[in-house]
């Protein structure tokens, strides 16, 4: 599968390179960014043509964040990675040493040009009356989320719920754990990725609530019409910071560092920020944030550093084998 992917991507790269562009970039990204990077890539190609007088063609590969990181570790030549969570890029730095471990300090805002959060998507009219996280653990409410073991988005879902419970129960870890356990007992299907979960909820009609990336929820509304679904914004959620990075070893080998750097910088530019906002990611710049302020409801956001002490720690405590998430599914609990 993975080799097939690599083979396919290189094949496509070969043809594309011969066909028109002078430079090619491969952006290895996560599941729900298809629409965002489609727009960014076209805009950046125009921008690069105008400023550097060079034709650039950018291909993007999408999939579960962990799987994508693994492809890069196993040899997929990504010039830039734009993944769902810092932990996956950390792994690329640790395991394959393709970029320095302090990569996250190289770009502004923790190397996250846009942010997002976790919201609820419910069916039209909100028949189960879901308003906040508490409603998700009620009996008879069925919640759809992907598996945190395989999906980056699902980890944000899980941590958002945990953070809410900690806040509600005055930082009582035991009660937070009971809360999240109760929530996952209301989950009938665990898809392996965010897009799969959206499909299960939207097209297969499973579940009452979908825990989703804010951008994914907006996209579902746009694609399927607001007549069928509604977004419910909880009182508290997590500030999701999907980071971006240059893969040093690859760009140096392929001689694409300059254009790759410009590509990531472009995400921080006015146009880049505007595209992010248009695709329902929360822009970082004041200007774009003001422009799209109406679109994004205000809610209390906490960061993973504040509540969990960073990704590495959260990963180890909650999602590693034998971690808290595994215990949720042990029999008799």
């Amino acid at each position: 599968m993975k080799y097939l992917n690599i083979a396919l991507v290189s094949l496509v790269a070969l043809f594309a390179a011969n066909a028109h562009a002078d430079v090619t970039l491969l952006n290895v990204s996560y599941d729900p960014t298809r629409e965002l990077y489609q727009e960014v890539n076209a805009a950046f190609a125009r921008h690069w043509q105008a400023t550097a007088r060079e034709k650039v063609s950018i291909r993007a590969s999408h999939g579960g964040s962990g799987r994508q990181a693994r492809s890069v570790i196993d040899g997929l030549e990504a010039d830039v990675v734009t993944l769902a969570l810092a932990y996956d890029i950390d792994e690329i730095a640790d395991r394959a040493r393709l970029l320095p471990t302090d990569w996250q300090k190289r770009l502004p805002n923790n190397s996250s040009p846009y942010t997002s959060t976790i919201v609820f998507l419910v069916r039209k009219g909100n028949p189960k009356g879901v308003r906040d996280w508490d409603d998700l653990i009620k009996p008879g409410v069925s919640v759809i989320t992907p598996n945190p073991k395989t999906s980056g988005g699902a980890r944000w879902n899980y941590l958002a719920a945990w953070g809410y419970a900690l806040r509600k129960y005055g930082n009582d870890e035991g009660r937070a754990r009971n809360f999240v356990t109760a929530l996952f007992h209301n989950v009938p299907v665990l898809d392996s990725g965010a897009r799969g979960a959206t499909t299960t909820f939207v097209e297969r009609g499973q579940g009452d609530v979908l825990l989703a990336w804010e951008n994914e929820a907006f996209l579902a509304l746009k694609e399927f019409g607001s007549g069928k679904f509604e977004i419910v914004v909880p009182s508290v959620s997590i500030l999701a910071e999907p980071p971006v990075a240059i893969v040093d070893r690859v760009v140096d080998k392929r001689g694409t560092r300059k254009v790759a750097q410009a590509y990531l910088d472009y995400l921080y530019s006015d146009e880049g920020q505007d595209i992010a906002g248009r695709n329902f990611y929360r822009p970082r710049s004041q200007k774009a944030a003001a422009k799209y302020a109406k679109q994004f409801p205000k809610l209390n956001l906490f960061t993973i550093e504040e509540v969990f002490g960073g990704w590495t720690k959260a990963q180890k405590t909650h999602f590693a084998d034998g971690g808290v998430f595994d215990h949720i599914y042990q029999p008799g609990k």
Binding site: E91, V189, L190, F319, A320, D321
Partner: peptide, 22 residues
């Protein structure tokens, strides 16, 4: 549906472990 202990097949367990770099 991929529910742990109920409807998880072994190949999925293998893929899950791979995805965690295990």
């Amino acid at each position: 549906g991929n529910m742990p202990l109920v409807s998880e097949i072994t190949p999925l367990i293998i893929v899950t472990k791979l995805e965690q770099y295990d």
